[in-house]
């Protein structure tokens, strides 16, 4: 799923304080799982903004609402009236949702309340870790199911580097060395000999490097 983190409150306030009316708009799927951008978080953030406006003596009408997903047209039906009447929208979606709203409402300012941080899993309650960078050419089949692009800080395809120490990455003792994990997995699979196969030079044209990507189902 897509993981996001709410921006510092002061940064959010600086973006929106110039408006007379604002809708704080949640997205109740990915970023709700990480308790940052769901409809409940939108309600809380709207309350905090109202309090701040009162403290600073500013008259801003702040509403809140939300939908299941800000990245698909059909979900917007239920929020049409709310958004049509909004002077500005503070979206709690990931960067995809923020842009989707902006595209739909050409003349309405839309601000991001979150920093979209990564594609990750729920490792344990309240703990999310990065697992994919959508490089467009998955190699998990030959790396024991451990992604070197998102989990090695040098995205080495023939790791580990000389900085791997006690299973940890050279940049932080809090980060597992991805290649230690690859080696452990290959060993568990009885395929440690595969470690010596040289990984080919990556085709980064399928990654962000190749420009914005799209995918069209011809049958639709």
């Amino acid at each position: 799923m897509i993981v996001g983190e709410q921006k510092p409150f002061d940064e959010i306030w600086e973006m929106v304080k110039g408006h007379k009316q604002l809708t704080v708009f949640g997205c109740n799927t990915c970023v709700a799982v990480c308790h940052q951008g769901g409809n409940k978080e939108a309600e809380i953030l709207a309350s905090l903004l109202r309090m701040r406006a009162t403290q600073e003596g500013l008259e801003i009408e702040i509403k809140n609402g939300g939908i299941e997903r800000q990245c698909e047209h059909p979900f917007f039906e239920s929020a049409k009236e709310l958004l049509d009447q909004s002077e500005a929208v503070l979206s709690l979606a990931c960067g995809i949702g923020v842009q989707f709203v902006a595209e739909k409402y050409m003349s309405t300012p839309v601000y991001p309340a979150l920093n979209t941080t990564f594609l990750g899993d729920v490792k344990q309650d309240g703990f999310f870790t990065e697992k994919c960078q959508a490089c467009g050419d998955c190699v998990l089949g030959v790396t024991g199911g451990v992604c070197p692009v998102s989990r090695c800080c040098k995205r080495l395809f023939n790791g580990p580097c000389g900085g791997s120490s006690n299973g940890k990455c050279e940049i932080s003792k809090d980060i597992d060395c991805a290649w230690q994990l690859v080696v452990d997995r290959l060993e568990a699979l009885g395929k440690l000999d595969d470690y010596e196969k040289l990984a080919p030079i990556k085709d980064w044209s399928k990654d962000r490097a190749g420009g914005p990507r799209s995918f069209k189902l011809e049958d639709f």
């Binding site: 023939n158 580990p160 580097c161 000389g162 900085g163 791997s164 120490s165 006690n166 299973g167 060395c177 230690q180 080696v183 452990d184 440690l192 470690y195 010596e196 040289l198």
Partner: peptide, 23 residues
């Protein structure tokens, strides 16, 4: 190329050298 026999995991440090030679 460089080689670091002291980095982990130690068990792949010889295979890693073989890989660099192959490269």
């Amino acid at each position: 190329a460089a080689a670091n026999p002291f980095a982990d995991p130690f068990k792949i440090r010889v295979p890693r050298l073989a890989k660099k030679i192959a490269a």
